[in-house]
Nucleic acid binder design. Structure first.
Length: 1036
RNA sequence: GCCCGAGUGGUGGAAUUGGUAGACACGAAGGACUUAAAAUCCUUUGACCAUUGCGGUCGUGCCGGUUCGAGUCCGGCCUCGGGUACCA
């Protein structure tokens, strides 16, 4: 009899559900703690063991915090809008809501089996109208807001309109707002449409013509973070650049706050770095270059104004407005051609050609305002329209791209920065440019001799004085494209009047996603919502047909969990004042440039308008590592190669007393093996071939006086010994029939076990479903039933078993290495799965999944059970007083486990519990005084087991409601210390001293000891180091 | 190219501030119990040398440094993983 985990686990899962054990409410008497998991997109494949890793960690932490007296908010929900369900809808006609519902049910079932402590009464789904009402509502607030750089926050657009009415936009300093100056009179004279157009430049959610990432295969635009290397992140379809009118969110207004905010949150440095790079702040200046002979001015952004004296040419992006205006007539054709070529190339092609230098001269010149020299203006696609001003001053001596361009087109290179303590070097001999920001200015007029930093300031100062430039900061971060031409997303609460977008009245929210007859664009290329019948307002104005992107619903979800069923407001102020923000957020690092930036932005905006109470949504972030798959391989044999290999292993090096040759040729004839001494010819092949060859071979052999042996491949697999026997007989001069058995091999697949010699020469690895493999041993019968063509498979085993190979790679269906938690729970139980996932290694590290180790945790769980129950599985806990030794084991473990949980070092916490159980088993301890606190201690890890034992111990209130065992430090104090004694840093022996023995006493005792003499012998003692409680080191 | 992170037994990993390297677990080998299997228990398990017992030498990717003492700190390199890519 043993611990019946499946019964116990089901019992407690039901108990938790019926008694709503994990339901939480605001409780001002307790401190709050908010533990959140990044919520999942419910995919059709269900959960594999990698998904719950983070959930288990957060669950352990949440349970721990509860035991520590915190009121813990630990919700779960679904990011239910998404492309896969919609792609499936396009293919099958199944409504994405149906697919999503089904997938969610499956997820829920899987999650419940693992025993999580989620408060399911707070579940949210982004596709639920009660939820997306608030996504739409937030969009409306963004539309109704602008970013005031003076107050450094979002403000109401109504306030802005009032300013315009009274004083125009001269005094307004807004993000965006790149629009000409107008006065109050001008504003008041504008038509409504004109006014709306102006406001569009200020709104935080705005409509604009932009160059977007268009993905034809998905039929939609994608945000920058949804594109990687010119392909869509979901599905890896090619992406093109295209100009379209789209909704955008003015996240760039928050660039600086998003950057500085990183300093105050407890996230990993690597994620912060990724965000810093993505935001990409560069400080520099903008400088204006006149184009003589025209009224045009080229404005450039540079981080190196100090190199202005080395600017020998200029480059515009091919899409730049000025290209058309300044190109001289004799270069027009060439330029037009180049512009066209750039347009036609996809992002991917452009990226693939990064190293290729290309560009054309426009025929125009600009004046370098500091040197007053005329420099040529080129266009080239290495200058991007989307960054800075879309134009650069090229300083080939100090920028590697400019350098490559100058070399390619033979443009002058002038050195203007030199290294300290070094003279100038002739640039014509350079192989690379000198890009470093360390150095001294030269050839640079008034800044000569200055350090780079100083020179930058001086040039900017001078430029501002002469009104030819200003200090400027640039960000790489782009405004977020917020429209998707898809069906399965939130509709915009927007209608169009006179071509301008207007918001619906709040009372119309939620604007429900309408039914459509197909989930495809219309014939005219409009998004699927254009198919909806009567998709217009009550007054007949057309509604927006785009939908919102995936990140819309996932950006503010954590706030909704605080008050998920509120129908009046997004969430109550009471709720947000209590729960504030997320204390611990666990999820994958792949969201670094998407969700984790959008959510911060979203939250900062809600903070600005007075809804959120904290500027940052996630105080502490932990990124769990990926769990890689461990694939199992079987080795499919190339029968001919194998037979030849096997035979050669026996024949070579005169192993049978005579010398054989391999691949022997005689004229046009070729034999696999030939022995001249004994006159033997051996041919190995498929039976069909041998039968065909038999006659000509026999003729040849009788002519030459050789004896012939033809061995069908099947013989090697069925009875290799017999094959060898026949050869030996031949060598001895005996007679054997040319053929023995006449069994054909047909196309029967043959598999060879991993450690059979020569395997790598005659077989190819093939992925096999890991469910057919246990501890690397293949279930051969199951394998035969796996796929029809394997039914007849033959196996070459080792020690009677077929051993598989393995490889660590991504967990994926096609590699048959997906480990789903349900199977493991069935075999070992949820508690074992939970502890094993933690035991696997540090949470943040990626590691391969390996089922072999799970046995150890399974044993531990049962060993734990056996502390409380005897061999007959009868509960036996004694009420005797525990010994000091037993209590020491307990408190040592409490100390270790508590510290480890606080540091999210769950793998070592599990180890500590294992050590504890090993030691208590050794002590045969079954005392309540020890086992009761231990049950509470293990409950965050193995909640089912803990609940059952807690009940057996006679308690009626769930272990969840208990208090974490109190550490009594007294038990940890050691009366004696075992000191390792080392000589010259090498440990030689150990010696025990009372813990409070003073250092000089220890020194004396050590030097006097017999043991030490052996090592000191004949040498002089130079020094002795005693670190109390730690080590003793003698230097001789 | 640039920016991060990581390299420790056959394997996953431990060593919290510079102080006994390899905890815990898997796997492997041997043994006990059993008609047998499962389960359980015991012993060994970094490498090399020695082996009757003792014991010794080497060892945390590589090279060098600081220190009484380095897996841990410093300098240089190698390999792997992640991010990013004409960002001026």
């Amino acid at each position: 009899m043993d611990y019946n985990f499946s019964e116990v686990e089901m019992k407690w899962q039901n108990y938790w559900r019926h008694h709503k054990i994990y339901q939480v409410d605001i409780d001002p008497a307790k401190p709050k703690f908010y533990v959140l998991d990044m919520f999942p997109y419910p995919s059709g494949a269900g959960l594999h063991v990698g998904h719950p890793l983070g959930y288990i960690a957060s669950d352990i932490y949440a349970r721990y915090k509860r035991l520590k007296g915190f009121n813990v908010l630990h919700p779960m929900g679904y990011d239910a809008y998404g492309l896969p369900a919609e792609q499936y809808a396009i293919q099958t006609g199944t409504h994405p809501a149906v697919t999503t519902e089904k997938n969610i049910a499956r997820y829920r079932e899987q999650l419940d089996k693992i025993g999580f402590s989620f408060d399911w009464d707070r579940e949210v789904r982004t596709s639920d109208s009660a939820y997306y009402k608030w996504t739409q509502w937030t969009f409306m607030q963004l539309f109704q807001s602008w970013y005031n750089k003076r107050s450094n926050k979002a403000e109401s657009i109504d306030g802005l309109i009032n300013i315009f009415k009274s004083s125009g936009n001269t005094a307004v300093d807004a993000s965006g707002g790149d629009i000409e100056i107008f006065s109050a009179t001008q504003w008041n004279a504008m038509t409504e449409k004109q006014q709306q157009e102006v406001l569009m430049h200020y709104r935080l959610a705005y409509l604009a013509d932009t160059i977007v990432n268009w993905c034809p295969a998905l039929g939609t635009v994608l945000a920058n973070d949804e594109v990687s290397e010119g392909l869509s992140v979901r599905g890896a379809h090619p992406v093109e650049r295209k100009s379209m009118k789209q909704w955008l969110l003015r996240i760039t207004a928050y660039a600086d706050r998003l950057l500085t905010g990183l300093e105050n949150i407890d996230w990993s440095e690597s994620i912060k770095d990724i965000q810093r790079n993505w935001i990409g702040k560069s400080v520099g200046g903008s400088l204006r270059f006149e184009v003589p002979g025209s009224n045009e001015i080229i404005e450039v952004f540079t981080t190196r104004p100090d190199t202005i004296f080395g600017a020998t040419f200029m480059v515009l992006a091919p899409e730049h407005d000025l290209v058309e205006k300044i190109t001289s007539s004799n270069h027009r054709e060439e330029v037009a051609h180049y512009v066209q070529r750039t347009k036609n190339r996809s992002e991917r092609e452009r990226m693939a050609e990064v190293k290729k230098v290309s560009g054309v001269f426009t025929g125009a010149y600009a004046i370098n305002p500091f040197t007053n020299t005329k420099i040529p203006v080129w266009i080239a696609d290495y200058v991007l329209m989307g960054y800075g001003t879309g134009a650069i001053m090229a300083v080939p001596a100090h920028d590697s791209r400019d350098f490559a361009f100058a070399r390619h087109y033979n443009l002058p290179v002038i050195q203007v920065i030199k290294q300290k303590n070094e003279g100038p070097v002739d640039p014509s001999e350079w192989e690379t440019s000198y890009d470093s920001k360390e150095g001294i200015a030269m050839n640079s007029g008034f800044i000569n001799g200055m350090e780079v930093k100083e020179a930058i300031k001086a040039v900017v100062y001078e430029a501002e004085k002469r009104i030819i430039g200003t200090a400027r900061t640039n960000f790489r971060l782009r405004d977020a494209i917020f429209s998707r031409q898809r069906y399965w997303g939130e509709p915009f609460p927007v209608f169009y009047k006179d071509g301008m977008p207007y918001l619906l009245d709040e009372s119309n929210l939620p604007l429900a996603l309408p039914p459509v007859d197909a989930f495809l664009p219309t014939e005219t290329g409009e998004p699927p919502l254009a198919r909806a019948i009567n998709w217009k307002t009550a007054d007949g104005y057309p509604l927006e047909t785009n939908t919102m992107p995936g990140f819309a619903g996932s950006s503010g979800y954590y706030l909704r969990y605080m008050d998920p069923n509120n129908t009046e407001v997004y969430f109550s102020q009471e709720a947000v004042n209590y729960w504030e923000n997320v204390d611990l957020y666990i999820g994958g690092a792949e969201h670094a440039t998407g969700h984790l930036i959008y959510a911060r932005f979203w939250n900062m905006f809600l903070f600005d308008i007075g809804l959120a109470v904290k500027e940052e949504p996630f105080k502490k972030l932990i990124n769990q590592g990926m769990i890689q798959g461990r694939s199992s391989m079987v080795y499919r044999v190339n029968a001919e190669k194998m037979a030849e290999y096997m035979l050669w292993e026996e024949l070579k090096e005169r192993k049978l007393g005579v010398s054989f040759q391999k691949d022997f040729r005689d004229g046009s004839r070729k034999f696999d093996f030939f022995c001249e001494e004994a006159g033997i010819v051996i041919e190995v092949n498929k039976l069909k071939w041998l039968e065909k060859l038999a006659h000509p071979y026999l003729d040849y052999c009788s002519e030459k006086g050789y004896r012939l042996l033809l061995i069908p491949l099947r013989d090697f697999i069925d009875d290799f010994e017999n094959v060898l026997q026949r050869i030996k007989t031949l060598i001895k001069g005996g007679e054997v029939p040319v053929f023995v058995a006449k069994k054909p091999l047909l196309n029967i697949p043959v598999f060879v076990s991993k450690n059979i010699p020569g395997r790598e020469y005659f077989s190819d690895p093939i992925h096999v479903d890991i469910s057919l493999v246990r501890n690397d041993i293949l279930d051969t019968e199951g394998f035969k039933q796996w796929q029809p063509h394997l039914a007849e498979s033959l196996f070459i085993k080792e020690n009677g078993r077929y051993v598989c190979g393995s490889e660590v790679e991504k967990m994926s269906k096609s590699k048959y290495n997906v480990q789903n938690p349900d199977e493991l729970i069935e075999r070992y139980g949820a508690d074992t799965l939970r502890m094993y996932e933690m035991f696997l290694g540090p949470l943040e590290q990626s590691k391969p999944w390996d089922t072999q180790g799970i046995e150890g945790v399974f044993r531990f769980i049962r060993k734990f059970w056996r502390l409380f129950n005897n061999e007959q599985n009868v509960f036996r806990v004694s009420n005797e007083t525990a010994s000091t030794e037993e209590l020491k084991v307990l408190h040592k473990t409490i100390d270790k486990v508590e510290g480890d949980i606080e540091r999210f070092s769950f793998n070592t916490a599990v180890s500590a519990l294992m050590i504890c159980v090993n030691e208590l088993t050794e002590l045969k301890c079954n005392k309540r005084e020890v086992l009761e606190p231990l049950t509470v201690l293990i409950s965050p890890f193995a909640p089912h087991l803990a609940e059952e034992l807690w009940q057996l111990l006679g308690h009626e209130v769930s272990v969840v409601k208990q208090i974490f065992p109190e550490l009594k430090k007294d038990y940890l104090v050691e009366s004696t210390i075992v000191y390792p004694v080392s000589f010259n840093g090498k440990t030689r022996y150990k010696v025990e001293f009372p813990a409070d023995l003073p250092v000089n006493e220890i020194e004396k005792l050590v030097l006097q000891s017999e043991e030490a003499q052996k090592w000191i012998e004949g040498k002089q003692i130079r020094k002795i180091i005693v670190v109390p409680q730690r080590i003793i080191n003698v230097v001789v």
